[in-house]
């Protein structure tokens, strides 16, 4: 029974990683850049929700919506100010800019909200359902996280495959030049991708802090790195890859904690990643790109 319980918490943690990883993977797919500040957008999302619900007593749903709106705007502003001027620049310059943006967000948060941890009260409630005569107890947070992840996943797949805007995003990620010839505005499409990724980051932030209630300006950093790992794990640029990578990462982490050692769980997660990349250099669902000679 503890196996099942661990599995479920693994999937739940993995769901959070998956939602964050989606942001990484979509932005990578379309702008070919690693947005290192993505993890910190999560943190901002969590703070907004925290203040809305705890400080101003808003309804949790409003709190979540508000934090999504703020993060969406934040994502667009970051793209316009810091990344858009660098579309033609070398990848390393963009990476450093993203790192700078990450520092900026963390330090702004520290100034605005101090570095003392805030205790985040779950927006979902603290109850749980008991199964098998109470042998297996699953908290609502865990359940809601998994459900939200599934809903987002389905929504996103439908959006990208069925709507015109979604398809234009795929077109841009495949061939910017050809997409332009179709009359698609590439910059708008990239901004849209940032907007979606950031809105998802807000949701991830709220879910993450509902499960692990300590909120500080660096809350987003480690989950950000792990989700990035998950995106690479699943094959960066691939939406289903982000889901699979995220969930697997969550399961591996929880199992490593439960059955091997808590202290080395992160090391084990990263070791598995390395093994996967050695066997499959472009991740589980990644496409092989070979250079034309």
């Amino acid at each position: 029974m503890s196996f099942l319980s661990n599995l479920i918490s693994g999937i739940s943690l993995g769901s959070v990683y998956a939602i964050i990883a989606l942001g990484y993977t979509m932005v990578y797919g379309i702008a070919k850049m690693l947005n290192f500040a993505h993890g910190d957008v999560i943190m901002v999302g969590a703070y907004i929700c925290f203040f809305a619900t705890m400080r101003y007593g808003m309804h949790p749903i409003i709190g979540v919506l508000l934090s999504m709106i703020v993060c969406t705007l934040l994502g667009i502003v970051i793209d316009r100010l810091a990344y858009k001027p660098l579309r033609q620049a070398p990848a390393l310059a963009v990476l450093i800019t993203a790192i700078g943006m990450s520092y900026f967000l963390q330090n702004s948060a520290q100034l605005l909200w101090t570095s003392s941890p805030k205790v985040f009260q779950s927006v979902i409630g603290n109850g749980s359902i008991k199964l098998f005569d109470g042998a297996l107890s699953i908290s609502y947070v865990t359940l809601v996280t998994i459900v939200v992840c599934i809903v987002i996943m389905i929504g996103l797949v439908l959006f990208v495959n069925k709507t015109k805007i979604g398809k234009s995003m795929r077109a841009v990620s495949e061939d910017k030049g050809a997409a332009q010839l179709m009359g698609i505005n590439v910059n708008t499409t990239i901004s849209l991708t940032f907007a979606i990724g950031s809105a998802l980051a807000a949701i991830a932030g709220v879910l993450l802090c509902s499960a692990y209630p300590t909120l500080t300006p660096t809350t987003g950093a480690m989950p950000g790195i792990k989700a990035f790992t998950a995106a690479v794990f699943g094959g960066i640029g691939s939406i289903p890859g982000a889901l699979i990578g995220g969930i697997l990462l969550g399961i591996i982490e929880i199992f490593a904690k439960a059955y091997i050692t808590t202290q080395l769980s992160d090391a084990i997660v990263f070791a598995v990643l390395i093994v996967v990349l050695i066997v499959k250099p472009t991740g589980l669902l990644g496409k092989k790109i070979s250079e034309k000679v």
Binding site: K164, K167, S168, R170, A171, E174, D175, A178, A179, M182, G183, I184
Partner: peptide
């Protein structure tokens, strides 16, 4: 757009 269907490619043409 290699990863999109023929129909989707044509839809993109009418963007």
């Amino acid at each position: 757009f290699a990863q999109m269907t023929v129909l989707e490619n044509l839809e993109m043409g009418a963007f």
